[in-house]
């Protein structure tokens, strides 16, 4: 009798601990659901690049700003899941079930990867959209002594010599590559795409003349433009870049193709509880209103476009269609 009771209480204990662990709560203090509890939790902030990668730096900067502006009180450790261009991070996040202490930064890569990489099975639909934060207008850079003064100049030259001009960039499915391919397709011509892992190598290729042009974020080029080594001749986005407002957009130049924007936002696990979702949305809403953020966005040429919950989800599915079209056009 005594023994069975002991066994039973042990079993209950085991069951309880399994339950608690299944809920994904990390340490003892985070078991509740109210806002003040979330606040004291150290949130695992997932990114899909290694330390020093674009998403990694953005995430760490964002956390830094939120702490300085006292939007959050705890440091949020960043977790790098760099496998497979976002595929690793997406499947990690999908595996978090209804956890409340893991969220992830996402970029347009999260839309292209499931469509292009074999074995990347998780799509954005399986995750919970929390908030869309920014759109990074891409710009077109050429060497300062380049003969091309505008996007049309370059495209015309490409028409003269199809397949000979070179665009520098990252992987063949990154935003710049997709937009390059759609513009080329619209103009009925073609140019080479030269992949480099590091942004530094891409800019070096532009500086030494190996590559003729590159699409990238304004902040990548700013220092070289100031020094007179590069010039920005177009904005590869619907809106002009805040840093280079004089560069005409592709539409200004008469190109009608729908461009894929470089977006950054936040995703949560598939079954994140409603309270947690609201808590995070509140955090990012407040973060984007702080002076620290505004200053940061201005300096880096980012356009703040806050979208919460379903609005963000709808935007993503709409962008997913754009990406699909672009991939079809790029023959990938």
């Amino acid at each position: 009798m005594f023994r069975t009771r002991k066994i039973r209480s042990a079993l209950i204990l085991v069951a309880l601990s399994v339950l608690v662990s299944a809920c994904g709560f990390d340490s003892g203090g985070s078991g509740g659901g109210s806002e003040s509890d979330f606040e004291s939790t150290s949130v695992e902030f997932l990114v899909h690049t290694g330390p020093g990668g674009g998403s990694d730096i953005f995430a760490r900067d964002l956390i830094e700003i939120m702490r300085q502006e006292e939007v959050i009180s705890e440091n949020w450790p960043v977790r790098n899941e760099e496998a497979g261009e976002g595929a690793g991070a997406m499947s990690y996040l999908a595996g978090q079930g209804d956890a409340t202490d893991t969220i992830s930064a996402m970029t347009t890569t999260w839309l292209t990867t499931p469509l292009t990489i074999e074995g990347a099975e998780i799509t954005i639909d399986e995750l919970t959209p929390i908030a869309g934060l920014i759109v990074e207008p891409e710009v077109m850079a050429v060497a300062a002594d380049s003969p091309y003064k505008s996007l049309s100049d370059f495209v015309d030259a490409a028409k003269e010599a199809p397949g000979e001009l070179v665009q520098a960039g990252g992987s063949t499915t990154e935003v710049g590559a997709l937009n390059g391919a759609s513009i080329a397709a619209e103009a009925g011509t073609d140019w080479q795409f030269l992949s480099f892992e590091e942004v530094g190598q891409r800019i070096a290729a532009l500086l030494n003349g190996d590559a003729d042009m590159m699409f990238g974020s304004a902040s990548d080029f700013a220092a070289q433009v100031d020094a007179g080594k590069l010039k920005i001749i177009a904005a590869i986005s619907p809106e002009p870049s805040p840093i280079f407002p004089d560069a005409p957009t592709a539409a200004d130049e008469g190109f009608e193709t729908t461009l894929v924007p470089q977006v950054r936002g936040i995703m949560g696990p598939p079954d994140i509880p409603e309270e947690a979702l609201e808590y995070y949305q509140g955090v990012f809403e407040r973060a984007l209103e702080t002076d620290g953020w505004k200053e940061y966005a201005e300096r880096n040429g980012l356009v703040t476009e806050l979208r919460l919950g379903d609005k963000w989800g709808d935007f993503l599915s709409q962008q997913n269609e754009v990406v699909k079209e672009a991939l079809k056009g790029a023959d990938l």
Partner: peptide, 12 residues
Amino acid sequence: LQVRLPLGLFGD
């Protein structure tokens, strides 16, 4: 170094 070491099935 604050590495989150695996805690196993009974951990957490």
